[in-house]
């Protein structure tokens, strides 16, 4: 009898000690919270945190005036010269997003090396739960990145070395806009040898900001928002007579012509 009492007492003590030391998840906000647990055993599980940013994707439509962009397809400039594009590339960068009160919504710097061969470009993120009323977007590269070393960027990054090259080494900067092609200078209906145009626009002063693009969307964490923009490559040649003004590398005497192209670039992007 006495022996049984000892056994029961021992079991009772064991239960008591056990309940005092019960291990489990002690965090009330965890999915597996155990109200009886006295000691946290690191077993708590939680729902995945809500994303704090929304992804931005540029969905671009490439145009020349009202026509769709095509390489090796004849267009006509404002002076009646027939021309065709053989190369078209430009940098889109430095997005600035604004809410209804025109407050700037902080977003990371982004860069996209754009060509008419591709319509879709990932373009970073914006904070979640914001109304994005409008945005500005740059054609070119901001002055800090413009003087960075392309060798520092990993392959695949828009600012890494490219083929064909989109970086000047002689003046350490990126070519913001590279358009090249042929132009029927003498108007004889054919693109004769030497009848070409080449516009390589760069240098800090020629960064072109497209302002006040009405975007109107609410950013949702974790979602990807497609911004449908139109890129009018023909706009770059607005007011330029390709029979006489057909080449610039932006430097020296070519700066004036490059400035015209850069100024045109400020209105080449529109919301679709």
């Amino acid at each position: 009898m006495k022996k049984n009492i000892y056994i029961i007492a021992a079991i009772g003590l064991g239960i008591t000690f056990n309940s005092c030391n019960k291990k489990g998840c002690t965090d009330p906000v965890a999915n597996n919270y155990d109200a009886r647990a006295k000691k946290n055993d690191n077993s708590c599980t939680y729902d995945a945190p809500l994303p704090t940013t929304a992804n931005i994707n540029l969905n671009l439509t490439h145009k020349v005036g009202t026509e769709n962009f095509q390489f090796n397809y004849s267009y006509t400039d404002g002076s009646g010269n027939e021309y065709q594009f053989t190369r078209a590339q430009l940098y889109l960068s430095s997005p600035v997003y604004m809410d209804d009160s025109m407050n700037v919504i902080a977003a990371p710097k982004e860069y996209a090396l754009v060509s008419p061969n591709t319509n879709s470009y990932p373009f970073g993120t914006v904070p979640a739960d914001k109304h994005i009323h409008m945005m500005n977007i740059g054609v070119g590269v901001d002055s800090v990145a413009n003087h960075s070393d392309p060798g520092e960027y990993n392959t695949g990054h828009p600012l890494a070395y490219q083929t064909p090259s989109i970086h000047w080494n002689w003046n350490s900067g990126y070519i913001f806009i590279a358009i090249e092609g042929v132009v029927d200078i003498d108007g004889n209906g054919t693109f004769d040898a030497g009848e070409t145009f080449l516009f390589h626009i760069g240098m800090d002063a020629l960064f072109a900001k497209n302002s006040n693009l009405m975007t109107h969307f609410n950013s949702v964490g974790g979602q990807t928002h497609n911004l449908s923009l139109s890129v009018n490559w023909g706009q770059l040649l607005n007011g330029i007579d390709l029979s006489t003004d057909n080449s610039t590398h932006s430097m020296g005497a070519g700066f004036a012509l490059a400035s015209i192209v850069s100024n045109n670039a400020k209105t080449m992007i529109s919301v679709q």
Partner: peptide
Amino acid sequence: FFRDGGAPTLEIQVISPIED
């Protein structure tokens, strides 16, 4: 670097003659 100082670092300069 260069006679006109167009390249800010040797790391950038050395690529120039290759791509020129």
